[in-house]
Design a protein around this nucleic acid. Structure first.
Lengths: 122, 122
DNA sequence: ATCGTTGCAAACTCTTTGCAGGATT
DNA sequence: AATCCTGCAAAGAGTTTGCAACGAT
């Protein structure tokens, strides 16, 4: 039986209000405003639970800590700001229809990361 | 003054023969065949040097250890096999001409990762 | 012989886990 | 009251660094 703790509530709210993929560290910072003694271990544990519950989805990022975003969205890709490091969701798919692969290779999915400057860091 | 040690030679050769991006761990395995007491610390140190020397380029991979590939190639993307985890280089660019970004965002570059099965694991 | 490089082990960082106390139902 | 969850601290995994010995020049 899963319980509704202040910590879990604060973590879920952080994702709903941020509207972008968050790292565990970002979650700690944001959710600590509501539950000030929140520990990083609790953040990790709750993120795992929320992924299992399919409330969150893992976003693996090149060379960085994984981010997590609210699940259920359409196929999309991500943008990382070179300045602030924040990750944002992009709408739509950026890949050409038919990726050319070496013979014998079969593709099942793809990920695209766009880098540059976000609106706040422009 | 940089010296030509057996270790560095074995590491450089590993990249030349592998013909795909390698992780430090893969480098250790491959280069150990020639210099059997090779240590992982030496692999990391030599990779850093080779990146500084612009012989290697870092390939940041989503959710995995960075790989390194021989520098100087044309713009391309990467493929990771879901079975064996190896990373391969793909030719050409897979992204549509004009990525649609939120207002105020400016993009400078992109990375694409294709996943599936390689020829050996098909 | 000099001094850059190596291997080992310790240090770090990020993430996970054990445990006893605390909070939710 | 029962037991799930939390905070703390220790344990892991991957990468980096200090240091004395080694080896390329």
């Amino acid at each position: 039986m899963t319980r509704n703790t202040q910590q879990k509530e604060a973590i879920r709210t952080a994702f709903e209000q941020a509207n972008r993929p968050l790292s565990p560290d970002e979650v700690l910072t944001l959710a600590s405003k509501k539950v000030k003694q929140l520990s990083i271990a609790t953040v990790y544990r709750n993120i795992s639970t929320l992924v299992e519950d399919a409330f969150l989805l893992t976003v693996d990022v090149p060379g960085e800590a994984s981010r997590y975003e609210i699940a259920g969205k359409e196929h999309h890709h991500h943008f990382q700001c070179d300045e602030c490091g924040k990750i944002f969701e992009l709408e739509g798919c950026l890949v050409k229809d038919r990726p050319r692969l070496p013979r014998g290779f079969r593709s099942t999915r793809h990920e695209v990361f766009v880098y540059g400057h976000c609106a706040s860091c422009a």
